[in-house]
Computed example of a mutant assay.
Amino acid sequence: MMLLTQVTDTAQKVIDTVNRAIQPVTTPAVPVDDLRFGDLLIKGGWVMIPIGILAVLGLVIFFERFFTIRKASKDESELMRQIKSSITAGKLDSAVAVARNSNSPLGRMLQKGLLRIGRPIKDIEGAIENVGKLEVSKLEKNIGILGIVAGIAPMFGFLGTISGVIKIFYDISKTNNYSMDVISGGLYQKMITSAAGLTVGIIAYVCYHILNMMVDKVILKLETDAIEFIDLLEEPSR
């Protein structure tokens, strides 16, 4: 009976040993810190500074122009009605005052035309057209900078890519080590700067065309109202 017990114990030990041997070897999990957005920017290197400046510049220009153009595109039907009413009643001074007080691109265009009443229609049209060009140039102010940002931001990203590749080879030449620890710094810089440059460039490109479309709508509206004003002046002579 004792012999049977010893044999059983020995067999159990063998089974336990085999089970431990065939179990997969596991390594303790190394806690990985969450990668924060600020850490990513820092890993991008010095190229992130000009890319960040371009991003801030582009956003400032976009919002400043957006609100300016939107203000200029407000409905001016009431202004046109008041000026038409004053001209019909023969109150030229009242029409000029209404146009001056509107403080809008259309108001300044009509004011110049009203001050030219009595001259040939061609002179009035020319005066309105010249003021209109000045007003449009004011609306388009700094929009071209957005186009520049859209063009050079990806180029800075590409510059960061080249800088990251150079860093990888430099680190390898110093350590003669091809491990991921050595090349990860350059890879971070390469990928982060490329992504940042493309992101800023795409956003600036979209904002640039949004503003241009808004300006085109304002121009069309100004031209329509100017034609209506000229037609109003020509009515008595028909």
Rank of each mutant, 00 (worst) to 15 (best):
A195R: 01
F62T: 07
R108V: 05
I61N: 06
E228H: 10
D231S: 13
M214K: 14
L220K: 14
S184G: 08
N212R: 15
G118D: 05
N177G: 00
K43V: 00
D171K: 09
L139H: 03
G58P: 11
C207H: 11
A21S: 15
I230C: 01
A195D: 04
V182A: 03
M213S: 15
S163A: 12
R81T: 12
M80G: 12
F37S: 08
K141W: 04
M214H: 10
G197H: 06
S104M: 04
I69M: 05
G160P: 00
K190F: 04
I148Y: 13
V206G: 02
R65H: 03
K221V: 07
S86Q: 07
R81C: 05
V218D: 03
A21V: 09
L3D: 11
S73I: 07
D9R: 11
S194C: 05
Q111P: 03
G186P: 06
D33H: 12
G186H: 06
V25Q: 11
R100A: 11
K112T: 12
S77K: 13
T88F: 08
M109S: 04
P28V: 06
I143R: 00
R238H: 13
G160D: 00
G164Y: 00
I145E: 07
D39Y: 01
V14Q: 07
F62S: 07
G126Q: 11
I117E: 08
G90A: 11
Y208Q: 14
M213F: 07
N212K: 15
K122A: 14
F37P: 06
G45A: 05
N19Y: 04
K141V: 02
G197E: 08
